[in-house]
Design a binder for these strands. Sequence first.
DNA 1: ATACACCTTCCCATCATGGGAAGGTCAAGC
DNA 2: GCTTGACCTTCCCATGATGGGAAGGTGTAT
Lengths: 134, 134
Amino acid sequence: MNIGAAAASSGVTAKMIRHYEAIGLLRPAERRANSYRDYGERDIHELRFIWRARRLGFSIPEIGELLALWRDRGRPSREVKRIAEVHISDLQSRVAEMQAMANTLRELVATCHGDDRPDCPILDDLALDRGALS
Amino acid sequence: MNIGAAAASSGVTAKMIRHYEAIGLLRPAERRANSYRDYGERDIHELRFIWRARRLGFSIPEIGELLALWRDRGRPSREVKRIAEVHISDLQSRVAEMQAMANTLRELVATCHGDDRPDCPILDDLALDRGALS
DNA sequence: ATACACCTTCCCATCATGGGAAGGTCAAGC
DNA sequence: GCTTGACCTTCCCATGATGGGAAGGTGTAT
C-alpha cells in the first residue's frame, strides 16, 4: 500500500505521515525496491489510532505515550487513564479561559450601540488605563 | 523611555514589541541618538491596548483592525462591534469543539478501571476499526 | 511514446513567542 | 579612567502541526 492509499484510508495526509515518521512517532515504513514507502494493515491501524487521538485533541507527545501503551499488551490501564485525565483537565482550563474571554466580550458588545456613532465601550475598555498589570 | 521600561509598564515583552513593529502592527518607534527605541505615553497606551486585546484572544490581524479604529476618532462603533461579534463566535465554536472532546474523554475515562489490568476502553476506542472517515 | 498520477527529498511558510549570540551603550562604583 | 553589569541593537534559530511547492524519479494506461 502506497503512502497515498494509506493516507486515504487512515485520514492522515501523506504529508503528515512522513512528518510523524520523521519525528519518530511512527517507526520508519518499509520501503519497496523503488524506495516507495509500503504500508500494511497494522500501519493503517496505527495511523487511524493517531488520527482519532488528534481529533480528541491529544498532543503529539501524548499520542506517543498512548501509542507505546497501546503496543504494549500488558500495560496497566492506570497509565492510560492518567494521561486521559491530564488531557481532560488541560481541555477544561482552556475552555474556562476562552469562556471568560467570550463573556467579557459579550458584556462589552451588549453595551455598544453598533451604529454610526464613534463612542464604543469595547475600545474604551481596551484603552482603559488600569495600570501595567491589571 | 527605553524598550525595557515600555515592556515593564505595558505588559508586552521587549521581544514582542520589536516583533509588532517588524510586522507593521506598530509604527516604527522613535530612535534616540544611540539608536535605542524611545517610547512616550501614547506608545505605552497603544501597547497596553494590544496587551489587553491579546488577553481577550484577538488575533494580530484583528488587533490591527481594532487599533486602526481606535486611532480613528470618527469611526462608527458598528465596525468595532462587528469584529468583536465575529471573535465571540470564533471563541464559541472552539469552546464547543473542546467540550465535545472533553465529554468523549470523560465517558471513556469513566469506564476505564485505571488499575493494573491491561484492558482499557480508552485505547479500545482509539483503536476501533470504524472505517476511514468515521 | 507520451501523458498523467504518484512517489521521493528538501526547503520554506505559517503564528506568536522565546532563546541566544555578537556587538554597542550607559551608569555606578572604585 | 577603567571595570562591571545591565541594558540596548540586529540577526538567526526553535517551537508545533500543518501545508505549499520545487526538482526529480517511477508506474501505468493509452
